[in-house]
Simulated scan of single mutants.
Amino acid sequence: MDADNAMWPDNRIQTLFGIDLPIVQAPMAGPTQAEMVIGAAQAGALGSLPCAMLSPQQVREQCASIRAVTDAPLNLNFFCHQPRAADPAREAAWRERLAGYYREYGLDPAMPVAPSARAPFDEPWCELLEELRPQVASFHFGLPEPRLLERVRASGARIVSSATTVDEARWLEQRGCDAIIAQGAEAGGHRGVFLREDITTQAGLFALLPRVVDAVRVPVIAAGGIFDARGIVAAFALGAAAAQIGTAYLFCPEAKLSPLHRQALHAGEGDDTAMTNVFTGRPARGIVNRLMREVGPMSDLAPAFPLAGGALAPLRAKAEAAGSDGFMSLWSGQARRAHALSARELTLTLARESLQLLSQRPR
């Protein structure tokens, strides 16, 4: 698609990242592994590997698998949350709230559970990034501390992070982001909020995007509810330089999903989702299921991220074995439609159809 670059309204992201298409395959922790990254990257998009649920050795192995097939630009994505102090009283209240479900599934409500862990970007992660030298390093929930961020920059990586408000976008630009992801409330998975925890005023993408574009000088990547070429073209019309696509890639065969999650995705088109904190302790958008209906979707009892997930793990395992998705985090955006395309085919189709629509617009 190199010859078509002149047809895109804005080429800054292609130039910045060294990619052919203004499309970023979203780093979705769990479903996204090397196969999906390879497919998107080979088509000309920015392939993104989420590191939040992987060990450093697993990241090395995934990167080796990717590099064995393609030398296309690669994005490594990390969480940057501030770990919270343990709150035994809140965790005990959470266990008590879940006790009835434990008994329903034949579990001891007092059984020990392994804590849920999500390591934020720290010294060891920074050393790994310096070793692997990705072309792009993206962050969720803010940015690393300044000394680590400078090391990321010195490695040669372009720095990107998500903003859910104009204030967050300005904060990210002031600290040296090369590009900013404007994450609308429609996006599936975790909100990138980091300056304040209140999500009641979170804007949808097409209300947020033009305001972020006006507030910063760096290129802006649109994310949230973009599922097809119409969404990509609309994002460009509002000033975006690229689109980040998440939920659409979950329908690709490369997505590592449980059968129950895949079945839930196919059962609707996005109007069955809500923002919830009951699975991890941070707000995230997913398909409404039993736990969200009966305990949430937002609950003051859920321990701070990521601790809420530990007590849910035995319930999820038991319910899933019984064929129920009632305690699973079924992440999904507000727009989805089933398809049978590979990650490579999806990327090329999105690009081709977007260019077709752009060519029809009056100049």
Rank of each mutant, 00 (worst) to 15 (best):
L346A: 12
F251M: 11
P297C: 08
L265G: 09
R262L: 11
C252G: 04
D325W: 00
F279C: 05
F327T: 12
H261D: 11
A274E: 14
R285S: 05
G286A: 13
F251E: 09
E254A: 14
V295R: 06
P303A: 10
P259M: 09
A311F: 12
L315N: 07
H266F: 09
S258P: 00
P303C: 09
Q263S: 13
H261C: 06
H339F: 04
C252K: 00
R262K: 14
F279Y: 15
L291S: 11
P259Y: 10
E345Q: 15
F279I: 11
R293I: 12
S332K: 02
G333F: 06
A338Y: 07
T280I: 01
F279A: 01
F279R: 06
P306N: 09
A311C: 08
M328P: 00
A313F: 02
S342P: 06
R290Q: 08
A343K: 02
R337D: 09
R337W: 08
V295T: 14
A284T: 03
L260K: 05
G270D: 10
D325Q: 02
A311W: 14
G309P: 01
D325P: 12
L346I: 09
R293E: 14
A322C: 02
A267V: 02
K318C: 12
L341D: 10
G281W: 14
